[in-house]
Computed example of a mutant assay.
Amino acid sequence: MSHVTPVLVDLIRVETRLYNAVSARLRAQQGLGLGQFEFLEIIDRVPGCRVLDLVAEVAITVGAVSKAVDRLVEAGWCRRVANPEDRRSSLLRLTPEGEAQLAAARPVVEAESAALTASVPPEDLARLATTLAALRAGLEADQVG
C-alpha cells in the first residue's frame, strides 16, 4: 500500500463523519440536510445559477442535481425561472422561504463545524484548508482538461 492510500482513506472517513454529524444537527434544528443547505448556499452565491453550475460545484450527476432541485422547489425554497439567454435551461432563484431557511441554517452549520473541529489547533486547520484547496484545484483542473 502506498503512503498516500492511508491518507486518502482517513480523508474519506473524516469527510463522511463530519458531513453526517453536521447534516444530522442541521436536520434536527432546521429540517433540512447538509446537501440541501449546500445547494441553497450555491444558488444564493452564484449569480444566474443553473443546474449545471450546481453539477460543476458539487461534482455529482445532472440527474441527481435535477432531482435535488425538484425537492427544493417542492419544499418552496427555490424556483426555476426562464433563462433569457438559453431557453433550454432555467435559472434557479431562492424564494423568500429559501432565503429564510438558509439564513437560519448558516449559524447551525458554522457552530457544528466549529464544535467538530475544536480539537484541531487553528494553525493546523488553516494549513489543512490550504492543502485541501490545492488538492481540489488540481482535481477540478483535471476534470476540465
Rank of each mutant, 00 (worst) to 15 (best):
103 A>K: 14
82 A>I: 09
122 P>K: 03
83 N>D: 15
84 P>V: 02
36 Q>T: 15
27 R>T: 08
67 K>G: 08
104 A>T: 03
59 A>M: 09
99 E>Y: 09
142 D>A: 14
141 A>K: 07
71 R>S: 14
73 V>K: 08
40 L>E: 01
67 K>I: 03
31 G>K: 06
56 A>E: 15
77 W>C: 09
53 D>C: 08
76 G>A: 04
37 F>H: 10
118 A>L: 00
24 A>E: 10
92 L>V: 01
121 P>S: 03
65 V>C: 12
47 P>F: 02
93 R>L: 14
29 Q>S: 14
116 L>W: 02
71 R>Y: 10
30 Q>N: 15
50 R>I: 03
91 L>V: 12
132 L>I: 06
27 R>Y: 01
140 E>V: 07
130 T>A: 14
38 E>N: 14
93 R>F: 05
91 L>C: 10
98 G>M: 00
78 C>V: 08
114 A>I: 00
77 W>D: 13
60 I>R: 15
121 P>T: 01
92 L>P: 03
87 R>Y: 02
132 L>S: 03
98 G>E: 09
37 F>C: 07
80 R>V: 00
31 G>M: 07
79 R>G: 10
138 G>E: 13
107 P>T: 06
111 A>E: 13
127 R>A: 15
126 A>T: 09
31 G>Y: 02
60 I>M: 14
75 A>P: 02
54 L>M: 01
128 L>F: 11
101 Q>I: 01
46 V>C: 06
66 S>W: 02
52 L>V: 12
63 G>Y: 01
125 L>H: 04
51 V>P: 03
118 A>W: 04
84 P>G: 07
66 S>V: 00
32 L>G: 06
142 D>G: 06
41 E>R: 14
103 A>S: 14
93 R>Q: 15
85 E>T: 11
75 A>I: 00
54 L>E: 06
96 P>N: 11
128 L>M: 07
128 L>Y: 07
42 I>E: 11
98 G>P: 00
112 E>P: 01
83 N>S: 08
133 A>I: 00
36 Q>D: 15
46 V>I: 11
34 L>I: 11
56 A>I: 05
112 E>A: 09
37 F>K: 06
69 V>G: 07
130 T>L: 08
98 G>T: 05
95 T>K: 03
32 L>K: 08
49 C>I: 10
54 L>I: 10
124 D>V: 11
63 G>I: 05
73 V>M: 10
36 Q>A: 15
64 A>W: 05
44 D>S: 15
83 N>I: 01
29 Q>A: 12
26 L>R: 04
35 G>Y: 10
58 V>L: 06
37 F>D: 06
104 A>F: 03
38 E>L: 14
73 V>C: 12
50 R>L: 03
67 K>C: 00
62 V>Y: 11
79 R>T: 11
116 L>I: 05
105 A>L: 01
131 T>K: 09
36 Q>N: 14
118 A>M: 04
48 G>F: 04
70 D>Y: 01
105 A>F: 02
43 I>K: 09
50 R>G: 04
76 G>D: 02
56 A>F: 10
86 D>M: 00
116 L>P: 02
99 E>N: 13
67 K>A: 13
84 P>C: 05
65 V>I: 12
69 V>H: 07
116 L>T: 08
61 T>G: 13
139 L>M: 12
29 Q>R: 15
70 D>F: 06
34 L>S: 11
86 D>T: 02
37 F>T: 02
119 S>E: 12
110 E>L: 10
